[in-house]
Design a binder for these strands. Structure first.
Lengths: 356, 356
DNA sequence: TTGTACGCGTTATCAC
DNA sequence: GTGATAACGCGTACAA
């Protein structure tokens, strides 16, 4: 509003000292008489002065600020990632800007450039699928950048060989979860329990969303694990329809996201004995299909028979991203790293039985 | 790093014009020859110039920045709240700082004052239970402030009469969910299904956490609803132990948080027929206790027999908070408002049957 | 111990 | 149309 916040100048005038003396007191520098200090502090108190950090940071050149750009900050995984990043930021005295792209490349670019215009020291970005060339100039100008949960321009990546395109690889560090390894472990788990006809429920065809990237990585691991076991894969198993699950000809299904897990469980519950979630007449017949989901969720152990999931630690992922950022800010000039965090299979019952 | 980002001065030198001309071009002001504009734009391109927003904002006085201070940003409710706030912020061209207090009053104060020192235009705060007098000076200086999910210094509130202490009420607008009304509706729902001995599982004794505040509000509504129905309340029903639930002498229980809902469900599953979540021998006997939770969660409909919850719309709550903030920034000088958003009972099965 | 002069990168007020 | 010059609120050399 029109209210004029007191500045150091005002404080100096009130205390009858020079600007620099106020600055000294505020910054706790030595070389000020206790008496003057007292006068300055009194003036600060009376005026309700609070140093304008923006002005200070303009002068000193560093902002002690990081940016977090997610596809959607409120998404459980990304919120947890944020949490890990915030831990690091807080410990190091950094403040955090945050924003969601909702999977819109223009929005990502606007957000990122806005943050750069405010001179954040670094950014953690959950990238959309688009091109990230617009960042090159900013990164070259010194804005440390870490990509999280997926690499930038994954479309340009050779996902089969897992080798990143050199240009994109040079943009910044990347921290991801090992979805591919997780899918392998899940399929191996199912095979160990006797399953042979295993399907995948996801959206590998959606290029733009984080969920699409994950689906592709999971599908890759799935395909590799099936091939390694010498099992044939019907192409329809890779494009399963939730509603048609019960008659899809598979005895087990790997779900690419929480949403897909929910869809599968709903479809199976509905197909059970037609009696809905109120409790089937023959509950032991309800779980003919083994289910493994990607992404843990609240009370997964209470959904009968307990939902087996592949999960990772998104908080740790965020912490790792933050630490990489800090290393860069400390002057680390090594080439960009790709960090792949392990995933874990959490068996709870929905995948620990043989096929019919 | 040591890299010198080009400034308007550099651009001016390169284009052979004055500083002000560059400023004019950058801001799209009228009165510049197309030829000069061209030269300036070329220089901008060649140098990779990007305006330093911090410097601009220092000069203009407004930062177009809001702050979001949560107990924990990654908490589902608060992440959703953030999302609603971000919608409003984005539409109005504001950037967002965010941070978590982890329920530590000092941390809240440090965060809030840091944001004020950076001259945010407004803040949305999920307050800790402590005193918020430290904010008075900032609010007086023009920082619009909205408290969300709980009022500041709830301890000083007369929770029985629901009247806020005047001093705290004057601090800023407040947006909360009507937990009290939700508890009333839940208890009435249970009574309508024939229940008479109804318990409450929560942590009303924890003063510091958001969960504690919610528990107290829910317990208040619970008590009122029981009294209104002329039903006696055994004091032990207000301090239930999850493990002792099956033998607590109640036929229904209202849970104060997702965590408590989970505890109750686990305890009941364990007590069921001793066969765990794998499926009870007599599933119809497993739900002797009616359960209503506060706070919806993923796949609540898949936990048999479907978990009935009281829920509200945290995204809407965040949007409301953002809109209140915008109204204040637009110059609204009305006395602080208390907005109470309605909650809804979502019946799914766990509370829709009579007592044994 | 304290103060002066200047610069950070931008916008705003005037002249020319 | 264009350009000096001051100003925003603060930090830093260097002088007093």
């Amino acid at each position: 509003m029109g209210i004029h916040r007191p500045t150091m100048k005002d404080v100096a005038a009130r205390a009858g000292v020079a600007l620099k003396t106020v600055s000294r007191v505020v910054n706790g520098e030595t070389g000020v008489t206790p008496a003057t200090t007292e006068r300055v502090l009194d003036a600060i108190e009376e005026l309700g002065f609070r140093r304008n950090e923006s002005a200070r940071l303009l002068r000193t050149g560093q902002t002690a600020t990081l940016g977090f750009i997610a596809e959607q900050v409120a998404d459980p995984d990304q919120a947890a990632l944020y949490r890990g990043l915030e831990e690091v930021a807080r410990d190091q005295g950094f403040l955090l800007y945050s924003g969601s792209t909702d999977n819109d490349q223009d929005r990502e670019e606007r957000l990122a450039l806005s943050l750069c215009a405010r001179r954040v020291d670094g950014m953690v970005i959950v990238p959309t699928s688009g091109d990230h060339g617009y960042l090159a100039a900013e990164i070259a100008a010194g804005v440390a950048t870490v990509f999280a949960l997926r690499p930038p321009a994954a479309a340009a990546r050779d996902e089969a060989t897992d080798r990143a395109a050199p240009a994109e690889a040079a943009l910044g560090d990347v921290v991801v979860a090992d979805e591919r390894g997780g899918a392998k472990a899940a399929v191996a788990h199912l095979i160990a329990h006797g399953h042979r006809r295993i399907g995948f429920l996801g959206t590998p065809g959606v290029p733009d969303a984080l969920a699409g990237y994950r689906s592709r990585r999971l599908a890759l691991g799935y395909t590799e694990a099936m091939a390694a076991a010498g099992l044939p894969v019907d192409q329809s198993w890779l494009s399963l329809n939730p509603a048609g699950l019960p008659g899809a000809g598979v005895t087990a299904v790997l779900c690419g996201s929480r949403a897909h897990t929910a869809q599968a469980l709903h479809a199976l519950a509905a197909a059970g004995q037609g009696d809905g979630p109120g409790g089937p007449a023959r509950p032991e017949r309800r779980w003919r299909l083994a289910v493994i989901g990607f992404g843990d969720f609240e009370l997964a152990d209470l959904v009968p028979p307990g939902i087996t999931v592949i999960s990772y630690d998104p908080v740790r992922l965020g912490r790792t991203a933050g630490e990489l950022l800090m290393r860069r800010l400390a002057g680390d000039g090594e080439p960009p790293r790709l960090v792949e965090l392990p995933v874990a299979l959490i068996p709870r019952g929905s995948a620990e039985f043989p096929p019919d």
